[in-house]
């Protein structure tokens, strides 16, 4: 097996609040192969975005990566000088954010914003910059792109703005794009379009994709492998089909049960009981324990990761694997 494109080990990103340390990411490990689509799911607040930002070194104070390693083709990114990290951002690693209404600069034209992103890595003339902007916008499905270069973000719909953001991410054909819930803020129909297009684009360019979502249905439609995150930790991972067929962690199973597609028509959706955890007041041991139907006294101790082949989970009382 060749070395993975991206190898994350024991990554921990903490926020130092006034009187508490919030462990938003608390020992996350995973790998990503070139061209692979990896899904990262979990309820909101589970640390998905912070994981994504950490990979690019985009954590603002009071947050900090306190431990762990992120290796891109063997090169350590944690602790890299800012200038070297900056040279990688947008060129090797890119990111698309959740809310297209807030990511683009409202007072700059689309062309100006794309030009700034190009100029971050190479010198371009204004004309070449425009041509490149038009090309990349066309690629992400913006009709009549050349004529809309001088438009401002507010003249675009949410879906179109997110396409512009995707175009910026694709600009330099990076090795990895981290897509942080890029369709969550959009209409369902546009969400489906962008999902399909994005899948086609990354497979065409050979770009690996980390698709973050709170929606297991979206992730399972896209990713070949998924990571399930809970309270800053990966609680289960494995190939999508396998995890969906036989979840081992009770949390994953709860997420699956709450999917509308799995419910009887007309029946109430099954919810995971209890509230998502607050980082400031996590129970000792397994963070899911207060909501877990299988919890017992053993769960007061943090479960280690159990690995079997491609599957892995963090639970003292995993569900049955069933036939492999």
């Amino acid at each position: 097996m060749s070395a993975p494109l991206l190898a994350v080990r024991d990554l921990a990103t903490h926020f130092f609040a006034r009187n508490a340390v919030l462990k938003a990411v608390d020992g996350v490990s995973f790998t990503l192969d070139a061209g692979e689509i990896l899904g990262l799911v979990g309820e909101s607040g589970s640390g998905k975005s912070v994981t994504g930002y950490s990979l690019l070194g985009l954590i603002d104070p009071p947050g900090r990566i306190v431990a762990g390693s992120v290796k891109l083709q063997g090169r350590e990114l944690v602790g890299l000088p800012t200038a070297e990290l900056r040279a990688l951002r947008g060129r090797r690693l890119a990111m698309v954010f959740q809310d297209p209404m807030t990511t683009l600069n409202p007072v700059l034209t689309i062309a100006a914003q794309i030009r700034l992103a190009i100029a971050a890595h190479e010198r371009v003339s204004a004309r070449a910059g425009r041509a490149r902007a038009a090309e990349v916008l066309t690629r992400v499905g913006i009709p009549d792109a050349a004529r809309r270069l001088d438009a401002y973000p507010h003249q675009f719909s949410g879906g179109m703005r997110q396409r512009v953001a995707i175009a910026v991410a694709l600009l330099n054909r990076p090795d990895v794009i981290i897509a942080d819930e890029p369709t969550t803020a959009l209409d369902v129909s546009i969400q489906a379009q962008i999902l399909t297009e994005m899948k086609a684009l990354v497979s065409e360019l050979g770009t690996a994709l980390i698709w973050i979502s709170h929606d297991l249905a979206v992730v399972s439609a896209l990713a070949s492998r998924i990571l399930v995150m809970y309270a800053g930790r990966i609680v289960e991972q494995g190939p999508t089909a396998s995890v969906l067929r036989a979840p081992r962690h009770p949390y994953t199973s709860g997420l699956l049960d709450s999917l509308p597609a799995r419910a009887e028509p007309g029946a109430m959706l099954r919810q995971i009981p209890g509230l998502p955890p607050t980082l400031a007041a996590l129970p000792p041991g397994c963070a899911f324990q207060p909501r877990c139907p299988r919890a017992d006294s053993l769960c007061g101790m943090a479960p280690q990761v159990t690995l079997t082949g491609v599957r892995g989970w963090r639970c003292h009382h995993p569900l049955d694997g069933g036939p492999p």
């Binding site: 690019l56 985009l58 040279a87 951002r89 954010f97 683009l104 971050a120 953001a165 910026v168 991410a169």
Partner: peptide
Amino acid sequence: DTVKFARASGQS
């Protein structure tokens, strides 16, 4: 996010 996004694209 505007600034974060600009940083994510490698702008100084």
